[in-house]
Design a protein around this nucleic acid. Structure first.
Lengths: 193, 193
DNA sequence: TTGGTTTGGGACATTGATGTCTCATTTGAG
DNA sequence: CTCAAATGAGACATCAATGTCCCAAACCAA
């Protein structure tokens, strides 16, 4: 078991790591400790070395995102609505996401897993389902759509952090771009408000 | 003036820097020197320290991209066609682009410039023109469209590097996504082949 | 060939991050 | 309150990257 205190500082460190590393992946352990409002020695006490810390932070961030996406019940309802829920869920996990996908080398081996609950698997299933039901363009490779989705959400979160987009408008902007591109919305085929 | 030999090794180093740093932004100067097939001391002879090297590599990559985009004559013809030329130009400069935009902190101050020929300026002008002519969605912020464009091109180049997209299909995929999103292409409003 | 230029490799000092350790102090549960 | 758990600060050795310097060898133009 783990003492409540220990568990709390542990989470504080993991959160700070994700946040700081998202902004500067070359950040020092001292930086992370400071952000977590924790002594550098305490950090080392929980995570022997940098690799262990990063690995734990990745696993943690991944779990948060995975949980968030699972709650979106992406396998239910019409694909378009599911996609919107998915994007919203991803945006909500924005901080962790910026960290997780800011450095592609940080993932290594996480997307390899084939467990049915893996983030990539859930996304791929949704995309395929949408294509099968004739809602998504079947000419586009599933992997490409998936990459695009990640990229747009990532960009959206990043833009919000820089003030380009209002925090609450990120999901909407991403969804809109995904569904219509930059074309003018000629007919009322978007949403009914 | 500069000796032909010097000019040649200088370019070799800059090219290697862009290539290596694109893959691993924490790469060592020794790594870069090796990739450039040059002694580490030679590298230091041309670029006193890391900052100078990175700055020079950024400037070089930026120039290449800028030139490539200028050749696309983005301010001429219908916006949609211009956009397609722009994307193609950006994709062609893919290698440099992955480096330049792989680490957002590397740009710092380059997008600040207001020279009419700056990459950002040309892109913004095109987007505004497209909106004014009723081809691009005027509800989307110019900056957001611009960020999206970069993100998609970046993702496309990256995907090509990982084999997800065929090298020659990158521009097409990006353009298609930009213009239509992932929706099925209901009517013949895309292109005439 | 000759002489200046350019290069590669190695020795070297420096610097900053890292990881280990100790000890005094604070915290929190009982 | 009391004691064990947890912490923060700092001293310390280590290590890798960096930047400087030097010299012998390769190179290139005249």
């Amino acid at each position: 078991m783990e003492s409540g205190t220990r568990s709390r500082t542990r989470r504080a460190i993991l959160g700070a790591a994700a946040e700081v590393l998202a902004r500067d992946r070359a950040a020092t352990l001292a930086d992370i400790a400071r952000a977590a409002q924790v002594g550098r020695s305490t950090l080392h006490r929980y995570f022997p070395d940098r690799d262990v810390l990063v690995e734990a932070a990745v696993a943690d961030a991944y779990l948060v995102i995975q949980q968030s996406i699972q709650d979106a019940a992406v396998d239910e309802g019409p694909p378009l609505a599911a996609l919107r829920r998915l994007v919203t869920a991803m945006v909500d996990a924005g901080d962790r996401l910026l960290f997780l996908y800011g450095d592609s080398s940080v993932l290594e081996g996480y997307e390899a897993g084939d467990e049915p609950d893996s983030v990539a698997q859930m996304m791929a299933d949704l995309i395929k389902r949408g294509q099968a039901e004739g809602v998504f363009d079947p000419d586009l490779a599933v992997q490409w759509i998936q990459d695009t989705l990640w990229a747009l959400v990532y960009t959206g979160c990043d833009s919000a952090g820089r003030g380009v987009l209002p925090r609450h408008g990120v999901a909407t902007a991403v969804i809109r771009m995904l569904e219509n591109g930059i074309r003018v919305q000629s007919r009322g085929d978007v949403e009914s408000k």
